[in-house]
């Protein structure tokens, strides 16, 4: 009992650095994501499986007029990148959406009894979503590498980076929805929405196989820009500036939505 602080000692205490952001918190947060089988199924297993089922059989189908024997690219590479984007966006959305569960169970209220700054809390969610997104990209690319997909080194790196960092758009979406709806399982209804968005973003089938009307609409949906830019290093095609605008605008919309919903949430307590 002699170790108990005196009241005078207590009054000299400081608040934690970085608002309470720390590696222990982050490690436990990430461990929780990994323990969730559903999260793993959708972020790692599904993109890898889709690649193996859909992409791998097309390994010898050339993407361009240049034959694979002449060093041309295969359709499998195109699908591989799409799946990496898909895995990363699902991972980020679910990591951001975790705030919904924590609000529903009252954990976020419990955290208000600690020095943790709400911004540090969100930062932890963002970092954990980045780690989970990276895991999804690495797992998908590893499957592609092992399966023998050929891409120039800079394509692996650039496409991987775009798929990974671009997923921040969906971290923001997850946080936005997470602060908007108090529910135990936010991914249950976000999952199908993400699948539709991925379809419109050309992740499952190239967009030019859709009717023109669908193509015109798809350009304005949130996955379109990300898909275009992620595949650009591979196809070598210049991507539309519209793709960049698409990413920036959707990131702004989701981040602003998340910020407003967050403020409403902390005000209400």
């Amino acid at each position: 009992m002699s170790t108990i602080a005196t009241s005078a000692e207590r009054l000299t205490r400081s608040t934690p650095p970085l608002g309470g952001f720390n590696l222990t918190f982050l490690a436990i947060e990430f461990r929780r994501r990994l323990r969730n089988r559903r999260t793993l199924a959708f972020t790692v297993v599904m993109p890898v499986a889709l690649f193996l089922l859909v992409g791998l059989p097309l390994k010898d189908t050339p993407l361009t007029s240049q034959s694979i024997a002449d060093g041309g690219l295969s359709v499998a590479a195109y699908i591989l990148i799409s799946m990496a984007v898909y895995g990363a966006m699902v991972a980020s959305t679910s990591a951001g959406g975790a705030v919904a569960v924590e609000r529903a169970t009252g954990w976020s209220r419990q955290l208000r009894l600690t020095p943790l700054n709400p911004v540090a809390y969100i930062a932890t969610k963002v970092v954990s979503s980045l780690v989970l997104g990276l895991l999804a990209v690495v797992a998908t690319f590893a499957a592609g590498l092992i399966a023998g997909v050929q891409m120039p080194v800079q394509v692996w790196i650039l496409s991987g980076l775009v798929a990974w960092l671009g997923s921040l758009v969906f971290t923001a979406l997850g946080l936005f929805i997470g602060y908007l709806v108090p529910t135990e399982n936010v991914m249950q209804f976000l999952g199908p929405i993400l699948a539709v968005l991925a379809l419109f973003g050309g992740l499952f089938t190239p967009l030019d196989q859709f009717p023109q009307v669908i193509q015109d609409i798809a350009r304005w949906t949130p996955v379109y820009g990300l898909g275009e830019i992620a595949r650009a290093p591979l196809t070598g095609a210049d991507f539309d500036m519209l793709a960049v605008v698409n990413i920036v605008v959707w990131l702004a919309i989701f981040a602003l939505g998340a910020a407003l919903a967050f403020r409403r949430d902390t005000k209400r307590v």
């Binding site: 400081s14 720390n22 436990i28």
Partner: peptide, 21 residues
């Protein structure tokens, strides 16, 4: 309420402890 169900008792305490200087 106020507890995470997917971690252990000790992890809950460690997590909370990490938030205090």
């Amino acid at each position: 309420g106020g507890l995470l169900e997917d971690i252990t008792v000790r992890e809950t305490v460690q997590l909370t402890a990490s938030l205090f200087p």
